[in-house]
Design a protein around this nucleic acid. Structure first.
Length: 258
DNA sequence: GCGACAG
DNA sequence: ATCTTGTCGC
């Protein structure tokens, strides 16, 4: 695929102020409304052809999971494309690590490798699933938003920890599988207070949560999807594990490359 | 000054 | 994210 907004490429050499200004600009052109072009349920891994309503495996949407691993002074990005639960293509990208990890500026540290990987992908993704936040970000432009806007493709962010925002209800330790708790914007964010910027989503849970439990995922829209649809897509691509399959596969491939 | 923060 | 074995619970 190809970058369609090169002016938004994450340049690690910019000053912090310039990076933040770019993120506000990106948030301005990002869309947090549904514009997927497919039904999230059709992204289910077990989308077996159904004579009545199902679609052919060849017509199922292509979901691309993206994740990074680090080796010495370089970032290695892995992009794994899945269609109907099967891997149709894998790509890798690399870029030198030029800046340290700074909360809120993750895209400027890892974005280069991600762009490198996605540019070498020959299939056209119907949606991207990235590790990190989308709209759950101080300036509503997390790494999922940044990458989604760069390529103008639907994107969702899946994080294991909450960067900012406030769960509408306190997150009980063992949340039942399937639970969705809205994440409201707080004072640290640009979004108007009360805006639902994402969801805490319990993708799976152990049989006896009282003894051992799984923490929820923090899902947010990156681009061209609503917060609800972002969760629907993640829920459809989970296969019994905490992380959605596209992410798990990209994670494993990135480690393999490293 | 203190707190708080994806990967 | 990464450094790392066993161990607990399912």
């Amino acid at each position: 695929m190809e970058v369609v907004r090169p002016e938004f490429l994450p340049d690690p050499g910019r000053s912090r102020e310039e990076m933040e200004a770019l993120q506000r600009e990106i948030a301005g052109v990002a869309s947090f409304a549904d514009d997927l072009g497919f039904d999230p349920s059709d992204a289910a891994l077990d989308a077996t052809p159904d004579e009545q309503t199902g679609l052919d495996a060849a017509d199922a949407p292509v979901i691309v999971g993206v994740d990074q691993a680090f080796r010495d002074d370089e970032s290695v990005s892995a992009a794994v494309a899945i269609r109907d639960g099967a891997v149709v293509e894998s790509a890798e990208g690399r870029a030198p690590l030029e800046i340290p990890y700074i909360p809120g500026l993750l895209a400027f540290r890892e974005g280069g490798a991600i762009v490198d990987a996605l540019e070498s992908l020959s299939v056209a993704p119907d949606a991207l699933v990235l590790d990190g936040s989308g709209r759950i970000h101080f300036r509503q432009a997390g790494i999922a938003t940044h990458v989604g806007v760069l390529f103008d493709v639907p994107a969702v962010g899946v994080a294991k920890n909450l960067l900012c925002g406030t769960p509408r209800e306190p997150l009980a330790d063992p949340l039942p599988a399937g639970t969705r708790v809205p994440i409201d914007a707080d004072d640290s964010m640009d979004a108007p207070a009360g805006t639902v910027v994402g969801y805490a989503f319990q993708s799976r849970q152990y049989p006896n949560p009282e003894k051992r439990h799984v923490n929820p995922l923090y899902v947010s829209s990156g681009h061209r999807a609503s917060a609800e649809t972002a969760v629907d897509l993640v829920a459809a691509t989970c296969a019994g594990y905490k992380l959605p399959e596209p992410t798990r596969l990209a994670d494993a491939y990135a480690d393999e490359l490293k």
